[in-house]
């Protein structure tokens, strides 16, 4: 039933599979479902595949027309970056900053998300807007006063300083995502735990925390990729401790085409590895996982 049901949830007017439970409708639904999944996968992957072709092509091929549809495995563009001084330490800085951003945004953000979902308090609306403001104002404009502050306090050119800025960008995600997930957990569940002798804290630990693991994971993914892909603050606030993104992306726009693609590709890979590593935690413990 679950496969057929998908066909029906596509908002096209089509025969309701439950109304006419003939096998052919069912298999037609299944066909539609599978081809939908395949199509959407292709929609995501094909552009990435093009990026890969251009990365693994010689400069002549990148500029040629018609374009090839299979990479020729020319490693010239990639080896150029391999010889780039400081790539490894830039990579290390990027990972460090992204990691700190992840931890800080969750540790600081999640309690606020819980408060927003469970309590009515004065100033709640204002608080929520403040959180959102941070995402609605462009960082390159804020970078100047932040840089002045950092230079004065000695945070300038440290991984922590940059991570603090990136955390500001990631916090709206962590607060709002945890808020929406806490709101999705019936408060009765917690109350039941209280009546069974749990304190608010232990109830939270034993009942709620496992449930919002997917939300934590989602926030972590956002924090990581936001930090990973952020160029401007990284370029302004790090000098010797450059992140990989500031190192590569900043100058990508003005570089020859084949290096643009190779640089873009190099940046994408670590982010993809990270998402791959945490993807399974995106599913909640009881909803889907029990099915």
């Amino acid at each position: 039933m679950s496969q057929a049901s998908m066909a029906a949830s596509v908002p096209d007017p089509q025969p309701d599979p439950d109304a006419t439970p003939a096998t052919n409708t069912r298999s037609a639904g299944r066909f539609l479902y599978v081809s939908g999944v395949v199509l959407l996968c292709a929609w995501v992957i094909v552009p990435i595949y093009f990026l890969m072709i251009n990365t693994l092509s010689s400069p002549e091929t990148v500029n040629s027309f018609p374009k090839p549809f299979f990479p020729e495995f020319d490693l010239g563009s990639l080896t150029f970056f391999a010889g780039f001084a400081g790539m490894l330490s830039a990579l290390k800085n990027s990972v460090l900053v992204a990691g700190m951003t992840m931890v800080m945004s969750i540790v600081i953000g999640a309690p606020a998300g819980y408060a927003l979902s469970r309590f009515e308090f004065r100033g709640k609306g204002t608080f929520r807007l403040l959180i959102l403001l941070t995402r609605a104002f462009p960082l390159p404009l804020l970078a100047l006063p932040l840089a002045v502050m950092f230079i004065r306090t000695g945070l300038d050119d440290t991984a922590l300083g940059l991570a603090l800025v990136h955390t500001t960008l990631a916090i709206p995600f962590s607060v709002l995502i945890t808020f929406s997930l806490f709101s999705g957990i019936p408060i009765e569940l917690e109350e039941a735990a209280w009546t069974l002798g749990c304190t608010r804290l232990t109830a939270f630990q034993k009942v709620v925390l496992p449930l919002i693991l997917p939300g934590i994971t989602a926030s972590a993914i956002f924090a990581f990729v936001i930090s990973w892909n952020e160029v401007f603050a990284a370029a302004v606030l790090t000098i010797e401790n450059r992140t990989l993104t500031a190192f590569l992306l900043q100058n990508l726009d003005t570089s020859p085409l084949h290096l643009k693609f190779a640089g873009g590709f190099i940046l994408v890979v670590p982010a993809l590895i990270f998402i791959f590593a945490v993807r399974k935690y995106l599913f909640a413990m009881w909803g889907i996982a029990n099915r």
């Binding site: 390159p140 970078a143 100047l144 840089a147 002045v148 230079i151 004065r152 300038d156 050119d157 160029v231 401007f232 370029a235 302004v236 000098i239 010797e240 450059r242 900043q250 100058n251 726009d253």
Partner: peptide, 25 residues
């Protein structure tokens, strides 16, 4: 020498910040 080339936006922001903070690298 640490040669760092930036887009003019980041370049200018960093330079102005150092001026305002009165301390530079």
């Amino acid at each position: 020498v640490d040669y760092q080339s930036n887009e003019v936006g980041a370049w200018l922001t960093r330079f102005n910040a150092e001026l305002q903070a009165n301390s530079g690298s």
